[in-house]
């Protein structure tokens, strides 16, 4: 295996991982943009989508419709969470809302454990998606699920781009993200915009959850936590609340993680997560608006 092949392989790995991070981060950013809410429950909405898909495949549904139902289930979960837990405290201080989302996480996770136990379950992926491609005499490999992840990331994001630039509700979401009060003054139906934003973000979580579980091979109630933390980092690096920023942040984080494991000395590799979160803190301090909003000010 040549050095070049090694590098190409790691780039492929980075793009595949980055796509997953980007998908989670985009959903997180939509909610943050519109509501200024750091939604810890996003990871658990992913879990809802992934579990629904697994259960439906379990009763014999093919992968594609099961995945669509999973996304739908996530959207419904997001809708319910917003109505039941978040709406009553919409005007409460940041911290109250952050804590409420933590409590929602705690409930969903433990509900999942009560219903399904905390043991991991197999994610039955159809063989076609497990098939791997071998290039350059087997030195470079990737699988169809990698391809599907990257493809769905792009397709769904193009769809999202169309939605927020071409539809009234999408434009309303952007207006609300820019300035909620002004949007309200010009007659925007805030409830509608927020609920749509939540549904869209949760559907993204569902898609991300299914793809994450498909790549991981297992689902379990606490599966949402790691992607959520990573997505926080990705979203903040990119510029929290910015959709293009979340996309950029996701791919950068994927690349950074793979770079650390692939090219850094062995002593450094185990500190990967520490490096990633140190980067997060550095961004919050020195470039709080992330890469996309360099002028944002969030200090004292």
């Amino acid at each position: 295996m040549s050095q070049l092949e090694y590098i190409i392989q790691q780039i492929i790995n980075a793009v595949s991982l980055g796509s997953l991070y980007a998908l989670v981060a985009v959903g997180l950013s939509i909610v943050f943009g519109v509501l200024k809410l750091t939604n810890f429950a996003h990871g658990d909405v992913m879990m809802v989508g992934a579990f629904t898909t697994v259960l439906l495949i379990g009763i014999g549904m093919p992968f594609a419709p099961a995945m669509l139902c999973g996304i739908l289930a996530s959207a419904v979960a997001g809708f319910l969470i917003e109505r039941i837990a978040y709406r009553p405290i919409r005007n409460a201080p940041d911290v109250t809302r952050l804590l409420t989302s933590l409590a929602v996480t705690y409930i969903l996770e433990n509900l999942g454990i009560l219903l399904f136990t905390s043991s991991p379950r197999n994610f039955p992926l159809p063989d076609i998606l497990n098939t791997s491609w071998q290039l350059s005499g087997g030195a470079i490999t990737f699988t169809n699920i990698n391809v599907l992840t990257v493809a769905l990331t792009f397709v769904s994001l193009i769809g999202l781009g169309w939605f927020i630039t071409r539809t009234t509700i999408g434009l309303g979401m952007r207006a609300a993200a820019e300035d909620m009060q002004a949007a309200q003054l010009v007659g925007l139906n805030v409830n509608k915009v927020i609920i749509i934003a939540f549904i869209v973000a949760s559907a993204y979580a569902g898609l991300a959850g299914v793809l994450w579980a498909a790549q991981a091979g297992v689902v379990q109630p606490q599966m949402g936590f790691t992607p959520l933390l990573k997505a926080f980092v990705a979203a903040i690096i990119g510029g929290f609340g910015s959709i293009s920023g979340a996309l950029l942040g996701g791919y950068m984080l994927g690349a950074l993680e793979i770079f650390i494991v692939a090219f850094m000395p062995d002593v450094v590799v185990p500190y990967r997560d520490a490096i990633v979160f140190a980067l997060l803190i550095a961004f919050l301090l020195f470039r709080p608006g992330g890469l996309m909003q360099p002028n944002r000010e969030i200090k004292l």
């Binding site: 200024k36 750091t38 940041d94 911290v95 952050l98 933390l229 926080f232 980092v233 903040i236 997560d273 520490a274 979160f277 140190a278 997060l280 803190i281 919050l284 301090l285 709080p288 969030i298 200090k299 004292l300």
Partner: peptide
């Protein structure tokens, strides 16, 4: 830092 940014940053500290 203020608000949720300090929450997320201190959470980063916990993970580190």
């Amino acid at each position: 830092l203020s608000g949720y940014f300090v929450s997320v940053a201190t959470m980063g500290f916990l993970i580190i």
